[in-house]
Amino acid sequence: MRGFVIKMLTFLAGLFYFLEFILPAKIGRYNNPLTPYIQPVGEFLIVFWGFAIGVGALSLMVSHYRKIKFKRPGWAYSIVFFIAMLAMMIAVYLNSTRPTPKARFMYELLFTHMYMPLGATIFSLLALFMASAAYRGMKVRTLEGAVMVLSAIIVMLGQVPIGLWLTHKLPTRVQLPRISAWILNVANTAAYRAVIFGIAIGAIAMAIRVWLSLEKEMEVK
């Protein structure tokens, strides 16, 4: 019974959006009857999404709590997680509801001076990894590999001012930024358009399977 209700709700939810999109705005003298409901259904889904974020946070808390309870490897970091989460929640709550100078200072300290630099630092490590990976991985073993490496070099230099500086004395047509733009706007566009078509057809097939609850993972046990 539960499985049937879930499948029926999934089907009706998808049917609503499908019909609203494909039915014309005006059918004879009548307007599309589903269009006035797009906005309230959308509001409901926004609240629903908010619940999903809450469930995600709750799931994370349960996972870290279990790590502390059973003293699994790295459990000390789970304590740090709870301290950081509580501190940020208190700082944001106080700054939003009672924005005193102390609350503002706490918020600035945690968000602007700790979270932002930490986030930027983690992402900036990628620059070093990518340089090392490119050096080790981009080896010319075949003709296709050579074309790929050559294209990568042209685009990498053409996308930054140094490409123009290196080739500014050459005719405009063969300057690196122009060749790079051709690779991106013509060759890459054609190839990626083919990829998008494939992804879109796959996404339609997947969407229909999810809509009709045909996926095995959606079986309610």
Binding site: A131, V149, I153, L157, V160, I162
Partner: peptide
């Protein structure tokens, strides 16, 4: 800095090859 990093990566790729 991004331009110099790109140029360095290109030089390293060429040297590696």
């Amino acid at each position: 800095p991004q331009s110099l990093a790109h140029l360095l990566i290109v030089i390293l790729v060429v040297l590696g090859n």
